[in-house]
């Protein structure tokens, strides 16, 4: 049981990393970026390119951070910049289309089957026993990178000038603009950061499994949307807690012999949480206003 909980926390931290990206864009810009799931997927393949080209596996992390971020900026330009005001659904659909194109292009290059990723054995298989579970160093790496990115994001939003600008835009883009804040620049920054996190999360998942897989966006990534809703739309704390919660609950389904229902956990939890607390577990995000209204 302890081993399953520990394992669930590690998986949940990756869910959280993807959900944070979703919730950041939604919380600040009130936009739902469906291409986010596929940036997550593409992170692993960008990592493959980096490892194949450079040979130093860990350099793939900063590389994917930058590639993911740049891709996020491209999505902002293609799918969101032209759709101001109330055209949220059109923009979301456009981002969905960008995501689907990205899947297809990735499959054209790497095929539809999982592609093996070459990571040194001392990272992927070496480790130690804890509560009957073999913890491998890559799991600690995932936990460490995830926590570091979450902490950095928290500091960025709460302690820096960019963070102040982001909060100002989240509160009111019009007021922020009147105060001299470059709203477009802030928008680009938010897309860069959220997509960079998604890309890194995708790479971390590939480190963990040993494979880059074009299917993960539609499975793993979609869960992140539900986790965002569970935690509270637009609430960073909610994304973290929701991710960890779902990771643990999924692991426990196998412990209690109902693993075939594991994929339902996230959706059932979302229904229950939203039924009881329509604003989500934390509910500090922008959509609390919608619920209260």
């Amino acid at each position: 049981m302890t081993a399953q909980i520990l394992n669930g926390l590690i998986v949940g931290s990756m869910y959280a990393l993807v959900a944070i990206g979703f919730t950041l864009v939604l919380g600040v810009l009130d936009r739902l970026n469906f291409a986010h799931t596929e940036v997550f997927m593409f992170g692993a393949f960008a990592g493959l390119v980096a490892i194949d080209a450079g040979g130093i596996w860990w350099l793939a992390l900063p590389f994917v951070f930058v590639v993911g971020g740049l891709f996020g900026m491209a999505v902002e330009f293609i799918s969101f910049r032209r759709f101001e005001g109330d055209a949220r659904i059109t923009a979301a659909l456009s981002s969905l289309a960008v995501g689907l194109v990205l899947i297809d292009l990735t499959q054209k290059v790497w095929g539809t089957e999982p592609v093996g990723m070459t990571i040194p054995g001392y990272v992927t298989t070496a480790g130690f026993e804890l509560f009957g579970m073999r913890v491998v160093y890559v799991q600690l790496l995932i936990l460490g990178v995830t926590l570091a990115l979450m902490a950095s994001l928290h500091l960025l939003v709460s302690r820096t000038r960019m963070g102040r600008n982001i909060r100002a835009v989240a509160d009111s883009p019009a007021a922020a603009s009147l105060l001299g804040i470059d709203v477009r620049r802030v928008t680009q920054d938010v897309f860069f950061v959220s997509s960079a996190l998604a890309g890194v999360a995708g790479l971390l998942l590939a480190f963990r499994t040993g494979f880059a897989n074009t299917d993960v966006g539609l499975t793993f990534g979609l869960k992140a949307i539900a986790i965002m809703a569970i935690g509270g739309m637009g609430d960073l704390r909610g994304a973290v807690v929701g991710g960890l919660l779902i990771g643990v609950l999924e692991a426990l389904t196998f412990q209690f012999g109902v693993g075939k229902l594991g994929e339902l956990v996230v959706w059932v939890t979302m229904i229950l949480v939203l039924f009881v607390r329509p604003e989500g577990l934390f509910g500090g995000g922008v959509h609390v206003k919608d619920v209260r209204a």
Partner: peptide, 8 residues
């Protein structure tokens, strides 16, 4: 998406 609980 995650088979580690199965393996455990």
């Amino acid at each position: 998406t995650d088979v580690s609980p199965i393996a455990l």
